Amino acid sequence: MKDYEIYNDLKVPKGSKIILRLDGRNFSNLSKSLNFKKPYDDNFSTGMVEAARNLFKEFSPSFIYTFSDEINILLSEIPFSGRIEKLNSVFPSIVASSLTLHLTKFFNLSLKKNRPISFDSRIIPITNNDIYTYFKHRQDESWRNCINGYGIWTLKKEFSTKVASEKLKNLKSSDIHQLLFEKGINLNDIPSYKKRGIAIYKKTREINGFNPKINEKTTSHRNVLFVDRELPIFSYEFFEKNHIQ
């Protein structure tokens, strides 16, 4: 039967780096069925972060960036010997099950009423020179998602979903800014993580202790997992400073 598994040996080229991008499948329906808060649901966002943290426990990604229903995973050390079938199945299954477990704490999530949560997955080969460009592009998408999310939420207070969507289509970002400002919403006051997304990566922390054998204070350094909800606008310097490559 192994002869039928014709994609089994398809692998990422040795020595390469990749990004796995996971996207929620039909999450607009999930949002409606669970009645997520609009324009931003913190319980859902925290669930996505927890799912990303679980990936860190299982594997050793260099960097994870998430916003909305999207998770981007930078892998320098690629598990499963780079087997594409494994990468594109195991990662989204961990995220789907992790998110499900989290959401059941806050929502009435039932297989009788809701479709099972699932993600699609794609593999993107990347070089060190392109890491910043890729994540800056995704962060720009996060910003557009934020503007549009607040825009449609505001318009739906006065119009039907169909009319609100049509009105939003014809508005530039600057127009949406002005619309929101006139309604008392200043996007500058919105928390950074809603505009720029959330990153999960390792940072070196200084640990102070005491060695009773020599009766002296000691200092050591340890890599700890860090959830960054105060991201700056991505720059080359951000990735260099945090040794993300």
Rank of each mutant, 00 (worst) to 15 (best):
N186Q: 06
F238T: 00
I147H: 01
F80R: 03
N145D: 10
D189N: 06
R53C: 14
S68D: 14
L20I: 13
Y65W: 10
K105L: 15
S89A: 11
F181G: 01
Y193T: 00
F239M: 06
V49H: 12
K213C: 05
E230N: 13
F36Y: 02
D175E: 04
N242L: 13
V227T: 05
L10W: 11
S62C: 15
I200D: 10
D228C: 03
R83Y: 05
L10P: 00
K17R: 03
E141F: 02
K14T: 00
K17W: 04
F106H: 06
E182M: 09
N211K: 02
F238R: 01
D42V: 15
E5F: 12
F119I: 14
I84V: 15
N129R: 13
D3A: 11
K105F: 10
N128C: 14
T204I: 12
K14Y: 12
G209M: 15
V49T: 15
H177N: 04
E85L: 08
D3R: 08
G82I: 14
N72H: 03
T133N: 12
S28R: 08
W143I: 04
V12D: 07
P39F: 14
E166D: 06
K172R: 01
R138T: 01
T46I: 15
V90Q: 07
K14W: 11
I84C: 13
E240F: 05
K57L: 15
I200W: 15
L179G: 00
E237K: 00
E166Y: 14
I78R: 13
N211R: 06
S118E: 04
Y132V: 02
Y193H: 05
L34N: 05
C146A: 04
V12W: 02
E230L: 14
N211T: 00
G209H: 01
T46Y: 08
F44R: 03
S62W: 07
S16G: 03
Y236S: 01
F238A: 02
K157D: 00
A164P: 03
I94N: 05
D228N: 08
M1L: 14
F59M: 07
R138L: 12
